[in-house]
Design a protein around this nucleic acid. Structure first.
Lengths: 220, 220
DNA sequence: AAAAAAATTTAGATTTGCCTAAATTTAATT
DNA sequence: AATTAAATTTAGGCAAATCTAAATTTTTTT
């Protein structure tokens, strides 16, 4: 078993590894964890001894299979809790991250299995991120930012930006995962796009920044 | 704010204080916490510095108002979580204590308020224990063990024994909080009693041990 | 290729929470 | 009242997780 801190390090290393192909630097982890490089160096030694990562001093870090699985199980718990908080406890999608950061460390397979069951074995969390299965298998989708889309019909399937203020901004405009979006016009000059959300009458104007944070899927 | 360990000590001291009128001994706490007297002595010093308890070395311990409130807020969280797990997540009343021991340390007023709201601001947990309000006020009831009752009609309002096996034994016999019980006969010789549960046809035989663990209320 | 800069690790401390063993205080016996 | 026994505290250590500062290694620059 891992401590909550170790779980957080593994989760962090996993997420950074998705962005960076090569071995991870101590500094990158320190920055992401908001701690000192010395603390990270200490922790890397411990995680290496536990065979959760492979750490060659001065060279960098990679996850072992065990470490990756552990990280994905923590991510699974986080995402299931987020979805539970939104779907069953009426929280907004902008409120659940910090809560899930705590709840993901609750140790009980029975509890997480129950949450999964009550949610109907869901595939995605409230932000559209895939939920790893109980073996730590995860299935990534190809995502297209709305910013790069042509005129047409789309479904909102994810957000790239998880900032609570951004999420609140979206839900206030009835934009959540699953929303059907018609891209009506692209204003390259004004650096924005015009969309219409299925079911709502009025047009919505989105800046390129906002459109960059929205991940969509083509609809027939 | 307190650490989970500090919360557990305060909860423990509060619960022991209910049983023992005078000042609590270090040993009593050590036994209840399954730790050494030296560790308790350490912790008492820390809690005293934080003004959560009053500790006169060699003399004993009492809670301050702050300490009592903190303990009761933790107990509130524990009992609300237990009820939530039973009522909303389909756990058995014998399965929820260990989970609630973890969940009670989640730090979020919004979450516990939401749980309270979803449960309809409940008064009692699944074992019939009163739930302190958000100010740490608790209202105890006078309880009568079924063992001491005369022939008549009663409602099961609590259990004195929280052992999961005992609880499972009861629920397997359709005995849970709220069950209406008709005390049909008292067999002093056989050290047992005969009861009939409302809605069920057949008689149930309960040993004096079991009847001692059941807390009841007279029904008109 | 040598020197300077950047990144990383090690050294030495700190805090929390625990331990065992020793010292101290209080309570119980003789 | 003196001694023994029990309870409690203190002393000294350990492990996790953090820190700052110093030492080391790698990379970059000149």
């Amino acid at each position: 078993m891992q401590s909550p801190t170790e779980e957080n390090y593994l989760k962090c290393i996993y997420k950074l590894s998705l962005k960076v192909e090569k071995k991870l630097s101590t500094n990158a982890i320190a920055q992401a964890m908001c701690t000192s490089a010395a603390s990270v160096s200490d922790m890397l030694k411990r995680l290496d001894e536990k065979k959760l990562i492979k750490h060659e001093p001065y060279k960098g870090v990679t996850l072992t299979n065990n470490g990756r699985k552990s990280a994905l199980i923590t991510i699974r718990k986080h995402r299931l809790w987020e979805l539970y908080l939104v779907n069953k406890m009426n929280f907004g999608w902008h409120e659940v991250h910090e809560l899930a950061e705590q709840l993901e460390h609750i140790q009980s397979d029975a509890l997480i299995d129950r949450i999964n069951k009550l949610l109907g074995n869901p595939m995605y969390d409230p932000h559209g991120d895939p939920i790893p299965d109980c073996n730590g298998e995860i299935c990534y989708k190809e995502y297209l930012p709305l910013r790069d889309a042509a005129i047409g019909n789309y479904k909102l399937v994810g957000v790239k930006n998880h900032d609570p203020n951004f999420l609140k901004y979206l839900s206030e405009r009835k934009l959540t995962i699953g929303s059907l979006i018609q891209l009506v016009a692209i204003d390259e000059m004004g650096k924005c796009i015009h969309i219409k959300i299925s079911g709502l009458s009025k047009l919505l104007l989105l800046s390129h920044e906002v459109a960059t944070g929205l991940l969509i899927e083509k609809v027939k």
